[in-house]
Design a protein around this nucleic acid. Structure first.
Length: 541
DNA sequence: TGATGCAGATA
DNA sequence: TATCTG
DNA sequence: ATCA
């Protein structure tokens, strides 16, 4: 199925890739082999040439984990003059994340200043002027799991941002599928943070944990994400969302704007904010928002399923100030009303073992309706989280056709056994004789014997595009975005219904009837794209 | 100055 | 059509 | 709000 590329050890390198023109040497000291391989592969894919000999004249860039590793690796040879720029691997990471080369300034490693060579805590950054030759040495023995930094931790709110989780109490971006943080939440001044402070014992298998030295900043930015989103300013919200991981990974505590002025995703505004935060300890803009009755109310309303920024504003203008007020409003849609009625229920997270039981129940019920049908609970459950905000059920049938018409029957059956309780959205798209059409159902369900409502999504995929559905609905959103960008870089468009040859800019936007390439498993898709395989539980990027 | 993901259900 | 969700 |  999978075209040639998947058979090659390396996917075709792209001369137009973002790294084209670079000749790189990778210093392997202090780097896990697997990680090195991934980096090498990425570089090649994206157009770079990997040189095995560090001192080759051609080398334009050398990557290392820090200056010490380079010293260890090359020893005295270091004395020879490098023509190449020496960069932290983090530059690579950031560039891959952004899908483009980021500025090199803040990632360069300077040789010849052997001070602060061996402690891992970052040095003092008292003198800003001199800061250009600070080597930001990264985390110590990085023991990275495949892709990237943080993850772990019991779980964070899926589609919404609950916040601080255990070990790395950074905020929000979380997990689920293909959209960055969704609902607001942390604006409510009082509560918000404390819950689920389960400090998971630092597990040896944890990836390296960037010292979270700039929480003062990321916490504030996290709140702004929610606020702007609630206000409907997704662009702005997303900007803060992108800035957080960049700041979070810095190995030093920011004490001056100069230290962040060249970082990706940190522009003028962010710098101003950072400046204010590091000098005054707070951000007046946020304080203003948080004390603003209107902002707070709209944020709250927006947490109701089915109510977005526009409706929240409308309700506010109608004079409503709390959730009880809303209950007497007759302009709410049915879904919004359910979202309101079960507001607290829906916010309640579901323990993993209960999700597991419900998954079994769903599998069994599905088998009753259509033997051989395949039912998997995706989302954060599949990624191994300890609790889940909702359930994403991905369904298919191996015969490639009997999935058609299954969903309505299934839903009815689930209602008969009192598992599904209320409907939110129901849409049918499956068609005979095609691999198109995903049937979906959004609703509320209950754990057997209880009344507490949980959000559940059922999605039925034709066999041929099932792997895409599974990938998309397993997430997390960061992984999905990376895959999508990777696909784009190779001239494809990836979404939850397939992988399509890019209808290169020429035509309009609607890709129309192009059919997806066919794959039989998630792994085939990863392979085709040249993305290192990740087990579901490794996808908490 | 424009793009930043987008299809499709609901009312 | 505007709004909202995932 | 950021980037090209």
């Amino acid at each position: 199925m999978a075209p040639k590329a998947s058979k090659n050890r390396y996917p075709p390198s792209d001369p137009h890739g973002i790294f084209s023109g670079m000749v790189v040497f990778l210093c392997d000291d202090g780097v896990q082999r697997r990680r090195l391989q991934i980096w090498k592969q990425k570089l090649v894919q994206m157009g770079a040439i990997v040189e095995e000999e560090a001192l080759s004249r051609n080398v334009t860039h050398v990557f290392a984990v820090n200056s010490d590793s380079l010293r260890r690796k090359l020893g005295p040879k270091l004395l020879q003059r490098f023509e190449a720029t020496i960069l932290l691997y983090q530059w690579l990471e950031d560039s891959l994340k952004l899908g483009e080369k980021v500025r090199e300034e803040s990632y360069t490693i300077q040789l010849g200043s052997p001070k602060n060579s061996s402690n891992e805590k970052s040095v003092e950054y008292a003198d800003v002027k001199e800061s250009s030759d600070n080597q930001l040495h990264l985390y110590k023995k990085l023991k990275p799991s495949p892709i990237n930094s943080e993850s772990s931790s019991p779980e964070m709110k899926d589609t919404s941002l609950r916040n601080s989780v255990d070990v790395v109490p950074h905020i929000a971006y979380s997990s689920n599928n293909s959209s960055y943080p969704r609902s607001p939440s942390s604006i409510s001044p009082v509560t918000s943070d404390a819950q689920q402070s389960t400090v998971s014992a630092p597990d040896a298998s944890l990836p390296y944990h960037p010292p979270d030295l700039n929480r003062n900043i990321t916490e504030i930015f996290g709140k702004l994400i929610n606020i702007y989103r609630a206000l409907g300013d997704d662009r702005r919200s997303f900007s803060y969302y992108k800035a957080i991981p960049v700041i979070e990974r810095l190995p030093f505590k920011i004490e001056s704007v100069d230290q962040v002025k060249d970082l990706p995703a940190i522009g003028k505004s962010m710098q101003d904010h950072i400046h204010e935060i590091v000098t005054t300890g707070k951000l007046s803009k946020l304080e203003h928002f948080e004390s603003d009755e209107k902002v707070r109310t709209i944020s709250l309303f927006g947490e109701v399923w089915g109510i977005g920024p526009a409706t929240a504003l409308k309700l506010y203008e109608r004079g409503h100030r709390n959730l009880d007020d809303l209950k007497s409003d007759d302009t709410l849609t049915n879904s919004q009303w359910l979202g309101l009625k079960y507001f607290e229920d829906i916010k309640t997270r579901i323990p993993r073992d209960e999700v597991q039981e419900m998954e079994r129940l769903l599998q069994k019920a599905a088998e009753d309706v259509l033997p051989g049908v395949n039912v998997v609970c995706g989302g954060s459950f599949r990624r191994g989280k300890a609790t889940c905000g909702d359930m994403d059920i991905v369904i298919t049938h191996p015969d490639g056709e009997s999935h058609i018409g299954f969903l309505p029957k299934y839903v009815n059956h689930l209602k008969d056994i009192n598992f599904l309780r209320e409907d939110l959205v129901f849409s049918i798209h499956s068609e005979q004789g095609t691999d198109l059409g995903v049937d979906t159902y959004f609703g509320l369900c209950t754990y057997p014997g209880r009344e507490l409502r949980h959000r559940i999504d059922l999605k039925v995929y034709p066999k041929d595009i099932y792997p895409f559905g599974l990938i998309a609905w397993t997430g997390n959103d960061v992984l999905n975005r990376r895959l999508r960008i990777l696909a784009e870089s190779k001239g494809f468009r990836l979404d939850d219904t397939g992988l399509f040859p890019a209808t290169h800019g020429s035509g309009g936007k609607r890709v129309s009837a192009s059919t997806s390439l066919k794959f039989n498993s998630e792994k085939e898709v990863f392979d085709f794209l040249g993305f290192p395989w990740l087990e579901p539980h490794e996808r908490n990027i």
